[in-house]
Design a protein around this nucleic acid. Structure first.
Length: 599
RNA sequence: CGGGAUGUAGCGCAGCUUGGUAGCGCGCCUGCUUUGGGAGCAGGAUGCCGUCAGUUCGAAUCUGGCCAUCCCGACCA
């Protein structure tokens, strides 16, 4: 590419619309332009980067025997109705762009493709002899994100690699899942990224085991908890750990005490001069299921701990059948307005006990019984402090069973930095920020059962296909690479995904010798398969150097002063190290550098 | 959706308090000089001041509605 003939525009000032370094740099360096909220044009340089990433993803997927295909982005509602996800994906918090066509058919733009691929499998897979299968595609996905953010990090249209595997049994699924975990590690390593694979919540997609691949960067949207020995890493929303030991209660007998203006743990510990870990905190939630049923949930947890709402949602999801529902669609701490719809009389917020009566709920508005859950941290307390169910009063020295029935025990606590690890209590939990670029799931039979995708076993019986699914955010990955690798002058692309490997800067285009040398190298390098840009613009040298640094091409050749001794200057972007190399040797040297950095 | 902010030239911003012919820097165009880290001088072009309504003799400026974008929360590759 000759820059003099390219649509190449860099910005000297930081665009106001961008917040994080990678977003600013991609805009400034002319890689992307915003078209609408969460919608970006991938300009020629960006498209080359994306294709580099795609190639690596394809190679690693193909190496596992997965087969590339391409599924429609426009999807009929029918399929989503069969899987039971139409309503949850289109209503209220729904993330799917859905509309009606001119024949009054309901259709949607694919946010993901479980339904489509399962329909294909239902049609095509008949026998265990055809299993396992793993199909993947790389295409744009559409998601009506509530808040698009940070450029390509969270777009409403973005490029994703999604793969779906089909198996006769769980063992086969686990095998492919492990292969995918290896393939994902290979992809990210080859893209030159520092990353960590972490245990994850499987969320709305459903299923059992799941791991996320996190690119480590401060601008990440996720918290990763891990131990220094490398034995444990998990998304904070999934993480488990040993809580700090509770301080022994200073109370010995059950008493109701006046605790004016003590509606928070902090105030209460000050008034009672006790430890937060001696308190049973009771948090009220309002859960909504897909059939419209609203359930009031009272979670009791130790005072120094926090409820993890993801874990809580999963617990409530397991109980959906108790309410004749399939899934939970909402979980909130009700505000006074939400609460006014179902309370019989004002609740003593901040002073609730685990035993508050079901009669505080107005009959007929929500389910009559409050669902009571207790976190393990609170269940093991004795002589604890808790609310007295009337404002300004708490109970001290309370005990489960004698004072309150012990509710169902669950793990809904948030793991914290500094907690001890479960696998080895001598290890403490540390934290880092991560950008989720990949996620692999063991789905099981959720979709195949719902959609009737079955196969015939060796024994001649019919069974639902066992499925896995595996995603990579290709466009997010590309931006994550920038977030992880830049300096004050601009982007520093890992060599493997740089749009070009070499840029030749001609300091003075009116100097015939400089131009001739540059032309010669440009032709030679490209002919040798080294992707090279020629900056032959009629600009001053300083402008060219600044732009070369900004767009982050790994190696820069300058056909300047040193030409007099038959040499050109070669500068490595990442280190800024410069050396003069005789023209005939340039190709060999750069080739070896590229080989060394791509590995 | 709740909370916060912003919309003025391609980009970054001032002007608005106190209404009176729309400005600065960068970029862009022309010419001359310059030519190794975002050049200098001279000349030039570019605006429905987000949008609709209201107040007023007069609105970028005051008032109200709407729209869009960004940031903080719930969602996710």
């Amino acid at each position: 590419m000759r820059l003099s003939q390219s649509l190449f525009v860099t910005l000297r000032e930081e665009p106001a619309e961008a917040e994080i370094p990678s977003h600013k740099l991609l805009l400034r360096a002319g890689y992307i332009r915003r078209i609408g909220s969460g919608l970006y044009a991938y300009l020629p340089l960006m498209w080359r980067v994306l294709n580099k990433v795609r190639r690596i993803v394809q190679e690693e997927m193909d190496a596992t025997g997965a087969q590339e295909c391409l599924l429609p982005q426009l999807q009929p509602a029918e399929l989503w109705q069969q899987s039971g996800r139409w309503d949850t994906y289109t209503k209220s918090e729904g993330i799917m762009f859905a509309f009606t066509d001119r024949q009054q058919r309901e259709v949607a733009l694919g946010p993901t493709h479980e339904e489509v691929i399962t329909a294909v499998a239902r049609d095509m897979i008949r026998s265990y002899r055809q299993l396992p299968q793993n199909l993947y595609q790389i295409q744009s996905k559409f998601r009506d994100e509530i808040r698009p953010r940070f450029g390509l990090m969270r777009g409403r249209e973005f490029i994703m690699k999604d793969a779906y595997s089909f198996h006769a049994n769980e063992e086969s699924l686990k095998e492919t899942y492990q292969e995918m975990a290896v393939a994902y590690s290979n992809m990210l390593r080859r893209c030159g990224l520092k990353f960590r694979a972490v245990d994850a919540d499987s969320g709305a997609i459903g299923g059992s085991g799941s791991q996320e691949f996190m690119v480590l960067a401060d601008a990440g949207e996720d918290d990763v908890l891990y131990t220094a020995d490398g034995q444990y890493a998990a998304n904070a929303e999934k993480a488990v750990s040993l809580p700090a030991d509770a301080v022994a209660s200073i109370f010995t007998s059950r008493e109701e005490v006046a605790t004016p203006a003590s509606d928070t743990i902090e105030k209460l510990t000050a008034v009672l001069k006790c430890a937060a870990s001696s308190i049973v905190k009771n948090v009220l939630y309002q859960a909504t299921y897909d059939n419209g049923t609203t359930v009031i949930v009272l979670v009791s947890i130790r005072g120094d701990q926090k409820v993890n709402e993801v874990k809580l949602t999963n617990e409530l999801s397991k109980r959906a059948a108790d309410y004749q529902a399939k899934t939970i669609i909402g979980l909130v701490v009700p505000d006074s307005e939400a609460m006014s719809k179902w309370v019989a009389q004002p609740l003593p917020l901040g002073y609730i006990s685990p035993g508050i009566g079901d009669d505080c709920v107005k009959p007929g508005t929500v389910t009559a019984k409050i669902l009571r859950l207790v976190d393990h941290t609170a269940a093991s307390l004795t002589n604890f402090v808790t609310g007295a169910d009337r404002p300004g009063h708490h109970i001290t020295g309370a005990n489960w069973n004698t004072d309150y029935p012990l509710p169902v025990q669950v793990d809904v606590r948030t793991a914290l930095v500094g907690d001890r690890a479960i696998h080895d209590p001598s290890q403490t939990i540390e934290t880092a920020r991560g950008i989720e670029v990949g996620h692999i799931f063991q789905l099981g039979t959720k979709y195949s059962e719902a959609m009737g995708a079955t196969f015939t076993t060796e024994q001649g019986t019919e069974q639902p296909l066992v499925m896995g699914c595996y995603g990579v955010g290709v466009s997010r990955l590309a931006q994550a690479a920038v977030e992880q690798s830049y300096d004050k002058d601009g982007i520093i692309w890992p060599v493997a995904i740089a749009p070009y490997q070499v840029i030749i800067c001609v300091p003075n285009v009116t100097d015939a010798a400089q131009m001739a040398a540059a032309e010669q190298l440009y032709q030679e390098l490209n002919a040798a398969g080294i992707e090279t840009i020629l900056d032959d613009r009629d600009e001053r040298a300083g402008v060219k150097f600044k732009d070369a640094d900004l767009i982050g091409i790994p190696y820069r050749i300058v056909t300047g002063r040193s030409l007099q001794s038959g040499q050109v200057e070669v500068v490595t972007r990442s280190t800024k190290q410069s050396q003069e190399i005789p023209v005939p040797e340039v190709q060999g040297v750069i080739r070896s550098w590229i080989a060394a950095s791509i590995g």
